[in-house]
Amino acid sequence: MATPLVVSDVAKSFTMHLRDGIKLPVVAGVSFSIRAGECTVLGGPSGAGKSSILKMLYGNYAVDEGQIIVTHDDGLIDLATASPRTVLAIRRQTIGYVSQFLRTVPRVSALDVVAEPLVERGENREAARDK
C-alpha cells in the first residue's frame, strides 16, 4: 500500500513582532507517515501543536524546517517548498481540511460535510459518501 503522506523532522515557530521579535517554538522534530486508507489520531494535550501541524499539512502555515511529502497526481510533492498554485491544486484534489471550529449546518451529517468537495467536483453523492 502506498504512503501518501510523510512528515519528516518538521518544525514551526511564530515570531511576535509586537513583543521585540520574540520567537515562540510551536513544534520541533515532528515525523510520521500515513498510508492510504489508514485511520490516524493526532493526539496530545491542549497547546501541544496539533492544530498547527494540521495547518502545515494543509499549507496554511509555513514550515520552518523539514519536509511534508504528499502523493499527488502520481508524483511526490514537498508541501514545505511547493508553489502556491501547487498547494491549491493539492487542496482541490488530494487533501481536505475541516476546522475544529466548523460552523455546522443543522441536520447535515459530518459524512456529508466531508463528501461535499467530491460532489462539487462532479462525483455522485453516494460514491462520494462511500469514499
Rank of each mutant, 00 (worst) to 15 (best):
L18I: 00
L18Q: 15
D20V: 01
G21R: 10
G21W: 13
I22Q: 14
I22C: 04
I22E: 15
K23P: 00
K23W: 03
P25Q: 15
V26H: 06
V27A: 06
A28G: 04
G29A: 04
G29Q: 09
V30L: 06
V30H: 07
S31W: 11
F32V: 12
S33G: 08
S33M: 10
S33Q: 15
I34C: 06
I34L: 13
I34Q: 07
A36P: 00
G37D: 12
C39H: 12
C39D: 01
C39V: 15
V41A: 15
G44W: 04
P45K: 14
P45L: 13
G47C: 09
A48D: 09
G49K: 04
G49R: 04
G49V: 09
S51R: 03
S51A: 02
S52I: 05
L54P: 00
M56G: 02
M56T: 05
N60V: 11
A62S: 11
E65L: 09
E65D: 14
E65S: 13
G66L: 10
Q67M: 09
Q67I: 00
Q67G: 03
I68T: 08
I68L: 12
I69V: 14
I69E: 12
V70P: 08
V70D: 07
V70R: 12
T71I: 01
H72Y: 15
H72S: 14
H72M: 09
H72P: 02
D73I: 04
D74F: 02
D74E: 15
G75H: 12
D78M: 01
D78F: 03
D78L: 02
L79G: 10
L79N: 12
A80Q: 11
T81Q: 14
T81E: 12
T81C: 01
A82N: 11
S83Q: 14
T86N: 07
T86G: 03
V87T: 13
L88G: 00
L88A: 14
A89Q: 13
A89R: 11
I90D: 01
I90N: 05
R92K: 14
R92Q: 14
R92C: 00
R92S: 07
R92H: 10
T94E: 10
I95R: 04
G96Y: 12
V98M: 15
S99Y: 09
S99A: 13
S99T: 14
Q100V: 06
F101G: 12
R103M: 07
R103V: 05
R103C: 05
R103T: 11
T104K: 04
V105W: 06
P106M: 09
R107M: 07
V108M: 10
V108A: 04
S109M: 04
S109T: 13
A110E: 08
L111H: 05
L111K: 12
